[in-house]
């Protein structure tokens, strides 16, 4: 069944704050095989002007993903998670995520459409510090195959 377009604009409150840990950044960078010293070495990050190691650019999705679970598992929305694949992803950065950041993720359903028998939903997540500084915005298009 096609998703209800009335859900566009629905917001999901932040799921607490996310404390960005240095070791989590290193774990993520290691998992993607990226040895860029700014992800691993505090001195290298400091020489580049950062207060601590910075996170790889796609790390922001790990935060947005936690918030997106609230959306895809929203029983009122009714998305079939077993049919879901990732369709598109876009990041717009104000600055990199840095170890020590305390971040909050605000999530909103940006678009809903159906095409070729698939449900497609774009979720926008604005990631900011607890002090309100915008860090990065993510747009994630999720496709539920053959459910529309």
């Amino acid at each position: 069944m096609a998703l209800n377009p009335d859900f566009v604009g629905r917001t999901y409150p932040p799921v607490g704050t996310y404390q960005v840990g240095r070791e989590k950044i290193r774990e993520f960078a290691t998992a993607i095989g990226d040895s860029n010293p700014l992800f691993h070495d505090v001195d290298a990050a400091s020489a580049a002007g950062y207060v601590d190691v910075i996170a790889p650019p796609t790390f922001a999705f790990a935060l947005a993903f936690q918030a997106m679970i609230s959306v895809v598992s929203d029983p009122e929305l009714g998305l079939d998670y077993s049919r879901v694949v990732h369709g598109e992803e876009k990041f717009i950065y104000a600055r990199p995520i840095v170890a020590g950041d305390e971040l909050v993720v605000s999530t909103v359903i940006d678009t809903i459409r159906a095409a070729a028998g698939n449900d497609m939903i774009t979720v926008r997540s604005d990631i900011a510090t607890v002090a309100g500084e915008h860090v990065v915005t993510t747009y994630s298009l999720t496709v539920a195959r053959g459910t529309a």
Binding site: I32, D34, N36, L38, P57, T58, G87, E89, F91, P96
Partner: peptide, 25 residues
């Protein structure tokens, strides 16, 4: 997406200079 982005971030050296990054799967 993470792997593909390394072609860009390895080129510029400082991944913090990335302003926007977008892909379709």
């Amino acid at each position: 997406m993470a792997e593909a982005g390394r072609v860009v971030t390895d080129w510029i050296g400082d991944p913090g200079q990335l302003c926007e990054y977008s892909v379709r799967f």
